[in-house]
Write a protein that binds this DNA or RNA. Structure first.
Lengths: 197, 197
DNA sequence: CGAGCGCTTGATTGAGTTCAAAAATCGTGG
DNA sequence: CCACGATTTTTGAACTCAATCAAGCGCTCG
């Protein structure tokens, strides 16, 4: 099960195969049942999960008890509360599993050692961080400027696979609209496409 | 004018004073008049600006011609279109000056050389990237979950100084509401505070 | 096969927008 | 230092997009 993570590390050129073996003992496989909570508000997030199979997801709860999805992590994605993981602050979010999920987790030690041992690791990691920032900036821009319909269209364009695997109500919570709202958006889109023919 | 940048580099422990002097020739001072555009949609952003005095700001334009502020950069902040700067893509945003501004800019070369020459640079830079991600995550969470009033209260709490220096209509464009909307929010808040006495 | 969860639909409400115009503030040149 | 034009803020009235509340439908999985 850790094979996929190994492949990821080598494919992204973080490390060579032999280098990877030096830190393999820091990589811990876990099975997570659908619905299981991996992190709760108030805890310190000391694990970063790499998803081999399944989907993990991070979200916040507001005072009204509503969920707001921060990130989906399907196969080959890494998820953690970065603030908490990196700055050792109590987390403001939750992480749970949307499907029965096979994952591996690493702790901060892994990053520290990898950065020290593998000359390429930091470079690849920096690239990943920039990529992350790029995506978040685009998301902010969409939240600021686009209607519910446009946000949804962008989502299914960008994450086609996710839009099929994840319940609508969670997509809605990612887009900042209600499940009912998303249902109506989809209805409208269906009508438009029908009328085009 | 480059002194503030030097101080910033040394204070954050990116480099020592003597190290800094090795790359000083890559740091270019510029004066930017209020209203001047530094980057336009479609251009490649090859400069990252560090603000010594004044305020720079990045924003996007939607199809309706409305501005959406992505970032404010007052003194001691760095601003650039990260996507464009790092990935050499045409930019989707604009950068302009909200006040007459003294700044310095560096190009990608500066980061490459600094990363190579200064053993501490990458570490500090990584920290800065994580901090950036943390702030963007919080902003996304607010855009997903909070009302106009709450977003505004959070803004003036977090950026007290900015909320006094920057026109309301630009704060509105940062919060994802209209100037009229923000005006009404402020009126309501004033009423609430008045009635509390 | 029944209970629960997710999706849809309808009716209503409401937060925030839009459009328009007045009031206040700012900045600049005479 | 004042005046005038431009920009920003406020206010009002009508409107709209999306939220809320409530009910019914349809899956699926236990």
């Amino acid at each position: 099960m850790t094979d996929l993570f190994k492949k990821y590390i080598i494919d992204t050129q973080c490390a060579t195969e032999s280098q990877y073996e030096e830190v393999e003992h820091l990589v811990h496989p876990v099975n997570i049942a659908k619905g299981q909570l991996l992190l709760q508000e108030g805890e310190i997030c000391d694990k970063a999960y790499f998803v081999c199979k399944g989907i993990l997801r991070s979200y916040t709860l507001d005072e009204a008890g509503k969920e707001h999805t921060i990130q989906f992590a399907p196969e080959n994605w890494i998820i953690a509360d970065r603030s908490s993981f990196y700055f050792h602050e109590p987390s403001e979010m939750y992480i749970d599993a949307l499907e029965n999920t096979e994952a591996v987790y690493v702790q901060k030690e892994f990053f520290d050692i990898a950065a020290k041992k593998f000359e390429n690791f930091t470079k690849v990691n920096t690239l990943a961080l920039h990529n992350n920032i790029r995506h978040m900036e685009k998301r902010i821009n969409y939240l600021l400027s686009a209607s519910a319909e446009k946000r949804y269209l962008k989502f299914i364009e960008t994450y086609r696979d996710l839009s099929l695997r994840v319940p609508q109500l969670l997509i809605a919570s990612y887009l900042g609209i209600t499940p009912e709202g998303l249902s109506r958006v989809r209805k409208e889109l269906a009508n438009k496409n029908f009328n085009r023919d």
